[in-house]
Each structure stands twice: as C-alpha cells, then as structure tokens.
Design a protein around this nucleic acid. Structure first.
Lengths: 128, 128
DNA sequence: AATCCTATGTCAGATTATCTAACATGAATG
DNA sequence: CATTCATGTTAGATAATCTGACATAGGATT
C-alpha cells in the first residue's frame, strides 16, 4: 500500500477528529454538507475520516480564521482551481462562473475593504 | 510533538482496529486482559488505540500464528526482556521466574517437539 | 431600522458502536 | 476424561453518532 492510499484511508471517528482539529461536530458536518470534505461511512452510516480529511479540516479552520467563506474555501480545496484562478487574477475577474460562486463576497470586485474579507487576505485567496 | 508522541496517541476505535488487524473484538479485548496492550479510554470508557497498539496487535497476531502463547508474547512485547531472556539461553533455563511464567509450554524444557511450539520456533522465541 | 445570510449552537429521538460479564467450545495437554 | 487456552457468542447496558429542526449572533443588504 502506498502513501497516497494511507492518506485517504478511512480511520477516524468524528469524536477523534473533533479533538485533532478542535472543531465541533456541527462544524465538521456543516463542512461536509458544503462538500469541502466527503468522509467515508461505516456500514451503519457513521463517518470515518482519513488523514487527508483531517488535513483539509485544519486547512478549512485556517482559512475561516482568515475570513474566507465556505464558497471560497471550496474553490481552494475541492478543485485544483488554485492555479486556474490565479491565472485570471490581474486579467479578467468578470468571468461568469467565478462571479456567481463568489457573488456574496465579491459581487463588487473593485471595492475591497467592504467585503467580509479583510484587506490583504483577498490576495491570499487568489494567489496560490 | 515528536514521533514518539504521535505513535502513542490514542486515535482508533476498536472497530477500526479490527479492520486494520483483522482481529475480532474478542481477541483484542482478550489481549488487553492479558496486558499485552493497554489502550486508552474515552471519558465514556471506550477503548482508544494508538499506532503502537496496532503495531503490537499485528505482532501478537504474528507470534500467535507461530504457536507462541500469551505468556510468551507478553514476555516479548511488554517488557524489554528479549535480550534478558536470550542471555539465559544455553546456560540455565531453570530460573524460577521464567519457568513459572512459561510453565505451560516450557515445563519440560528438554523435550522440544512435544510442546505446542513447533520445532524451530522455540528458538525464534528466545533469540531476539 | 428591518431583513437576510452565513456559520454555528442546541436539542430531541433514533440508530450504531462499544462495553462488561457470562457461558460455550474445539484443540491441545496432562 | 478433566483442564487450560484462545476464541465464539449472547444479553443487557451505556456511549457515540446520526439526521433534522429550530435558534441566534454578526455582517451585509436593502
């Protein structure tokens, strides 16, 4: 078994993940609801998280602390959009798909400082 | 946190450990009963196993397959007796403590082949 | 100011997972 | 054949987790 398999192996109950990440069960479930993570399930429907899941949750926690919202985090984590998005930065932000996903925070892309993203962190969102 | 801490960190429920080791819950609990492992507990008294525990369980499984019994495995795993025991091999097996612990399989230390240990594996037990 | 949205808290009722304790058993041993 | 060891099995209790609903604080929107 290789390292990749190990990292995606379902191992941890939600109780353990709560301790590892210092997130509440509610938060973890909510992030799953938003498809930021997709933990496995036991035959009895209980969640089983992998190392990758835990890493993602820690990353989510970080990004939330920085003021980034679910939609943004989803972009950052679920798809390999990072490079794709950064390509667009500086060129054209009016891309329809991007706009629609980020409409809450970024509807007015020109007026930084009036969104929920604090200044200097929007860049963190876009670049890498 | 260092590697040692990580390896002894309580992480896994018994259900997961069952899958990882292919042991039954009964077996795992029995080994704990025999003090081969001492998993942590949740506040609600449910077992939480560490990587070290899982490793030990895999080792136990190996040794049991080789015909070694609980007492022997305990010697091999719980204490760092390996070197201590091997020192005695070839000299004096009548040591009282050793005899009493291994009395079931080794009461008649001279007559190999009549114990539950298959030939060639007794040596494996004693020498490292 | 009134409203809406997002992220999270909290609660209830149901279900799954695990616990201990007891009894059962096949294989090996004496 | 009686015993011991390692394990199976079962029952009843408790812990952990699940989903779904409603509550709410703080920003954003109107």
């Amino acid at each position: 078994m290789n390292d990749k398999d190990r990292r995606s192996m379902p191992l941890f109950s939600i109780g353990i993940v709560m301790k590892l990440t210092e997130l509440t069960a509610r938060q973890i479930r909510y992030y799953e609801e938003n498809e930021l993570i997709t933990p496995e399930r036991t035959s009895g429907n209980q969640r089983l998280f992998s190392f990758n899941d835990v890493d993602k949750l820690l990353e989510i926690k970080n990004l939330l602390d920085k003021g980034i919202n679910m939609a943004g985090i989803k972009l950052l984590l679920t798809k390999e959009i990072k490079s794709e998005v950064s390509k667009r930065v500086g060129s054209d932000l009016s891309d329809e798909e991007l706009r629609s996903i980020l409409r809450n925070e970024l509807k007015d892309a020109g007026r930084f400082g009036r969104t929920s993203l604090r200044q200097g962190e929007l860049s963190r969102f876009f670049v890498k």
